[in-house]
Design a protein around this nucleic acid. Structure first.
Lengths: 187, 187
DNA sequence: ACCTGAACACCGTTCAAGT
DNA sequence: ACCTGAACACCGTTCAAGT
């Protein structure tokens, strides 16, 4: 005898994202998700293989949102302005979803890692722009320099690792400006 | 009636470090540590407040090792050469202790965070050198740029986030050289 | 003074039984 | 076809009882 569905995969992922931002990964438990969507924990396993798979869905949903945010930065800007727009937008996104942003870069169990194609799509605008800045010969190294700095800055900022006072916004703009200059110079 | 001690805080921290590097934080359980030092899990609580406190001790021991490694880089080198020496040494250290290195920067529970003085001591050589490179007016922003890039690069490298092929060592040297140039330019 | 088994509250996960 | 309670294996942690 069929039973009506009392929840959906979308509701489960949404509940997981909310719990994650509210209390960090430790609070993202199957029991808490189940309670949030109105079923018992075992029922979640009808829609999701296990907790790792749910974490992966959360990361992938976040990557799709991020891609949209980055795509909203005009492609017609000159490379320095576009890079600034992309990295500022990325930073704003990380501030809005700090826990999920952290998971994107975290080295969790293999089953939690997102589809590489989604990562590539989200990263594409930054790669294009750094290639335009640094030229094709060193575009890979330039992209790695930019993504490393940006990721490191956001990671440290969001974990309160910048503890010597000063203006963090100012440090971001300083780093952005100097990196942009450095990558534009001939090597 | 006194009982002879069957373990020590040092052995416990050493066992925890070994377990951490062998299997990541999930494998660093009180039960596994207890087994490694030859007691039952409840006995650990005679020497350590709880698991978070043990994680903190692991992080702090790692910071002391890191400080020693960085201190072995000659202070007499000119600033660009000294910065290169420091960051290459830091990178080598991170490759040797990837899981512990990750914990230093991780945003774990407050009880796991290391003594800020230890962080400051380990960071001091890099701060000195970036100040010498960029000058006193922007030394804080320059230091944040360098630490953000280095942390981000190592974090991405160690979590296999550089997945577009190419030579990662080469990308490190490229970023190091360009950052050094950028911070040396007048602003 | 240190160590232990037993116990408790919590996880994730499986599965037979219900509708 | 979906949902559930019960159960299992695992955590961290406490504590009374042993030596």
């Amino acid at each position: 005898m069929p039973t009506p569905e009392r929840t959906s995969l979308d509701s489960i992922v949404e509940a997981a994202r909310t719990l994650l931002e509210a209390g960090g990964p430790d609070r993202l438990t199957m029991q808490a998700v189940a309670e949030a969507v109105g079923v018992r924990a075992p029922s979640l396993y009808k829609r999701v293989r296990n907790r790792d798979a749910l974490v992966r869905l959360v990361i992938e949903a976040t990557l799709r949102d991020l891609e949209e945010v980055l795509r909203s930065v005009p492609a017609e800007l000159d490379p320095p302005a576009r890079l600034a727009g992309l990295l500022r937008a990325f930073r704003a996104f990380a501030h809005e979803h700090p826990a999920a942003h952290h998971l994107i870069f975290a080295n969790g169990p293999a089953a939690t890692r997102p589809d590489p194609a989604l990562l590539a799509q989200a990263a594409a605008p930054v790669l294009e722009t750094t290639a335009a800045l640094a030229g094709p010969r060193r575009s890979l190294e330039a992209a790695r320099t930019v993504t490393a700095w940006t990721h490191g800055f956001l990671s440290m900022e969001l974990s309160s690792a910048f503890n010597l006072g000063g203006d963090v916004d100012d440090a971001f703009e300083y780093g952005l400006a100097h990196l942009t200059t450095a990558l534009t110079l001939p090597d």
